[in-house]
Amino acid sequence: MRARIGVGAAAVLAAGAMAAAGVGAASASPSPTSVSATSTTASSDVKAAKGAGGLKAFLTLNADSPQAAGDRAAEAAAALVNHPKLFAKLPAALQADVTALKDAAPADRVKDAYKIKTTALSGGYGAEIQKRAEALEKAATGLAGLRQELRTAFGSDNPGAGLQKVADQLINHPKLFAKLPANLQADLTALKNAAPADLDAQANKIKDTAINGGYGAKVQKMAQALEKKAAAAPAT
């Protein structure tokens, strides 16, 4: 489980970065050539239930999260409950709270999911769950920082320092970094190692290449979305 959490944390970080668009946090088992809609849904539920011990959907919430986040957490709770072998391995108190979330009225879902988060982080479900929760919380904090760095860089005429931080974070996850397009790996490595005077030129090259599709369609889509958000952000 710890190995799964480590990969999940890396994937969470990368998912928020332009370079990691489309890279999955976990790989599914091979499927038969002909798959029914029911079995496809079941497979999706299994992955939702198992990811990071089923905690990620609850640990990304805040007390003022939107209704949609609470709805997703309730769906994750249902996925856990519907896989009894996995659910039975959870501490009794966590089982009770996950079941309550599954059955909660829509208006209570955010509150109930946030309760799971705070209880996990405070050790109320035991030391092992607390450790997992803290690892995911740290990953989420890192993701928020990377997203902000990317937004700032895409809205700046001097994006070098911000994108260099993103490059450093991605390179520090070698298994994930290896899945990126080869030319993007090369450009991120060059940016990480660039002299201060060359940072902006290297970063602008990455931005332009990404926006123009030079790293592939998935990275292009993420880059264009970041550029749009940066353009819409109020000036500070």
Rank of each mutant, 00 (worst) to 15 (best):
K50F: 11
D208T: 03
K102D: 07
L170W: 02
L94Q: 09
K179Q: 13
T99W: 04
K228D: 11
R4S: 15
S34K: 08
H83N: 15
A194C: 05
Q164W: 06
L150V: 05
M222G: 08
A233W: 01
D64N: 14
A15Q: 08
A25L: 11
A69Q: 08
S44A: 14
K205M: 10
A161W: 01
K115N: 12
N204T: 02
G51H: 06
N82R: 12
P234H: 06
A178Q: 09
S156V: 03
V81E: 10
R132G: 14
D168Q: 13
I129K: 13
L150W: 03
K85T: 10
A37F: 03
K221G: 12
D71Y: 05
Q169E: 15
K179Y: 02
G162M: 12
A52G: 10
G8P: 01
A57G: 09
R151H: 11
D108C: 13
A76F: 02
S31T: 02
G216E: 01
D200M: 08
G22F: 05
L184S: 11
I171G: 15
A20D: 01
D200G: 10
Q185L: 13
A79T: 01
L199C: 06
T119H: 10
A9I: 00
A28Q: 07
T41E: 12
K207I: 03
Q130M: 13
P174Y: 07
V98Q: 13
A140N: 05
A233R: 08
V81S: 14
T189V: 12
Y215P: 11
A68P: 03
A42V: 01
D97T: 02
A203R: 02
S43E: 07
P106A: 13
V98K: 14
L61E: 02
K192A: 15
L184H: 06
G162V: 01
F154S: 15
A74S: 11
A19V: 00
A79H: 04
T41Q: 14
T38R: 13
Q220G: 12
N82V: 04
A225C: 07
L143T: 04
A9Q: 07
L184D: 07
A57Y: 02
D108G: 13
A48R: 11
